[in-house]
Nucleic acid binder design. Structure first.
Lengths: 232, 232, 232, 232
DNA sequence: GATGAATGAGTCTTCATTCAT
DNA sequence: AATGAATGAAGACTCATTCAT
């Protein structure tokens, strides 16, 4: 196997169109789910993506698999954001930057709105694990530097994002502003103020496993008991 | 027969049953909307309340009017909670107690999930105004005592509640715990730490009017604005 | 059993109220069915009669039996009208008077709108037979006098009434006028005119605009004109 | 390849099926509304057309828009009939032929049954205007020839049709006969008869028994086979 | 005997999914 | 591989009928 050919030889024609459709579909789904919520119709998503219904069902087995995929991609983008933020000089600054990115970025949502509707899948679990370790790593520095409360964990950050990304109607820009406002308010509460004593936070910090228990649909909660909910 | 008869002679039979149903329906609707979201079916709500579809439609003209009523009642309960909390000795304690109540009480939700779906109504506006002034009054003491950041307003508290009451699946008790956890975290961020300096919060504090713009459906946002009975 | 008491000793109290309700219910049903058609709700009829649902179902087994009764009563009133009209001096005048009465009277409808919905019953058959013979008798004189076409029968008159009483929306008075107009037009066609003079048609000819007023639902006539999403 | 391809290349497959469905749906709706009245369920109409519920709602936004379309098409067919009839040699014959066509044709109904239920629409207004002028033109000749009463207008003809097309249950052929019978009767009344001879009325006079066959619902037609339909 | 709340089957409408071209 | 028409199960809502007081 001497010389490998150009790794991805710039796909042409049909292939190229297909890839473009993939991306457009993903973006459209993300937007639609974020704006409207789980109740957006598949038709609406397909229309936003500019493709026909048939093409949609060629790529995804249905609405649920699509949303699962969106969820995975969102987590991956968030993971990437955490890694990028880790390059900041200051440990606290890295944390702040990550959270600001996560709260502002239009395409890096956790789609908490869907929480409880979708069951967990292997792909979600893997993406989740990667996100977990990325955030954990992000927390190490500020924690060891003593600027972050010891009882704040990685799952706290995720849950916080879930709360902050609650769908609220309004102009996108204004909503972004408000999210940043409350993010900073909460970050203040997470910080170890050097001089002032802090009351202990009520219950134990959730761990990663519990997050899954919280936002994956439990088997007995299923809407349609025999519904197939696989990937793609 | 000297005294007057009991003014409201404790209704009996059907009448009594009707009243009980009223309450059960309200509670059921609140729960169902909180847990499942706007997409709960009316059938589901009626089932939870233990009444038939017809009885539901005897009391409310539809799903929307029901949700409006739930919204109003929720606000009124919240208003009442604010008044009760105001009796606390300490200003800060009063604020904390109110927020804890609001976040924990099973029946005092703002139902932010419905935000943007329902249009405003006179009754909502009035309940909203009452809630506003009750919270405003609650903020006076801690603000003048200097334990509350000056740039925190009444609308901030409401939006915070909206965020904290984001629908999250899980055991009710555990969810309550987590909400309290993040509530305290944020309250820490709202407090004026006497010694340490605070970074300014990003954007201006939202005022009450803006809240309505955020969570009432605007007329032009209607799904099908001018639907009439035209051709085809 | 020596002397029988006054045959109908002017019923009192409950009994009297019941009779009054009977009449009110009959009138209300007649009106409602005439105005709205078969689709009027039983609730609406009961409301117009000012009685509760229970009282309605005490008297009639349901909507269908009620309509049957209304139908029978209508036929009886029509039969009576035919007998009264027979007293006219002129045979042709008697016929005309009967038809005018039948077309105008608010309570003597054949309720053709219900035609085809209700099955026959013995009571209907009997009332029908009586009406038949009354009309037959009414036709004898003009027929023998040679002013009525020989090939016109009693059933023709009834079918004509059915056609003329087609439910048409509009002001009651205007509708009455139009019915008389077409009645006279048709009577002309039924007459054996030895000479050719013609009586003028009663009301002015409707113009095209009026047709729309008649059969288009006017915006302000909407069943629920301003239905919006209010409280309860 | 000199010539241009077939402008409308006779659509194939799904496209073709869709067109066929359009026509079938229109016919089915017409029939169902004529026979049953406004209360026919959409399900029934779809079933008659041999299509699913969804396909129905793909084409029309609901029952009302469908009926509006049917109404417009009916008027257009009627207009066309008036234009065709105008080619008759004799002015009176043209009028008679038009009315006979209008009363007999299975697809050219004014659907008076729907009158008052549907609001006007631009399309209805336009179709209406065209029908108006077509009938007006049809009346010119007989009126100027002095064989038509001067006080008969175009709207009279339409209202007459409305009356004559009153829904009456029975065998289609028999109903057609009866309609023609009363049409001719009325036409006699519309004619200026200088001499007094009269044409014989077409079909034999219906007898009393037949009336019942016409307007009583037949047992096998019952909506709910076991429905009790007794007196009181 | 009167009342009106409760019931649930039926109607209109939507939307996720399939399938023939 | 793309398209969009067809499908039918499910949801919101109505109304004839029953029943407990």
């Amino acid at each position: 196997m001497p010389a490998n050919p150009a790794p991805a030889p710039a796909p042409r024609g049909r292939r190229r169109e297909a890839e473009r459709n993939d991306e457009r579909l993903l973006v459209a789904a993300h937007e639609a789910l974020s704006e409207v919520g789980w109740s957006v119709s598949v038709t609406e998503i397909a229309k936003r993506a500019g493709i026909g219904m048939g093409s949609f069902y060629r790529r995804y087995r249905g609405k649920v698999p699509l949303a699962q995929h969106v969820r995975v991609v969102s987590m991956e983008r968030l993971t990437e954001a955490a890694r990028v933020a880790a390059d900041e000089r200051d440990g606290w600054e890295a944390l702040v930057r990550f959270m600001c990115d996560a709260v502002s970025a239009p395409t890096s949502t956790l789609l908490p709105l869907i929480g409880g509707i979708l069951p967990g899948t292997p792909a979600v679990d893997e993406a989740s694990a990667r996100l977990h370790s990325a955030i954990d790593k992000l927390l190490e520095r500020p924690r060891s530097e003593g600027v972050l409360r010891q009882d704040v964990g990685a799952a706290d950050l995720v849950l916080l994002l879930v709360h902050l990304r609650t769908r609220i109607p309004g102009l996108p820009e204004r909503i972004r502003q408000l999210r940043l406002r409350y993010l900073h308010m909460t970050l203040e509460g997470m910080r170890c103020a050097p001089s002032s004593e802090r009351a202990a936070l009520p219950p134990p910090c959730p761990d990663w496993q519990e997050l899954h228990l919280l936002w994956d649909r439990r088997p007995d909660t299923r809407v349609r008991p025999d519904e197939e909910t696989h990937e793609k």
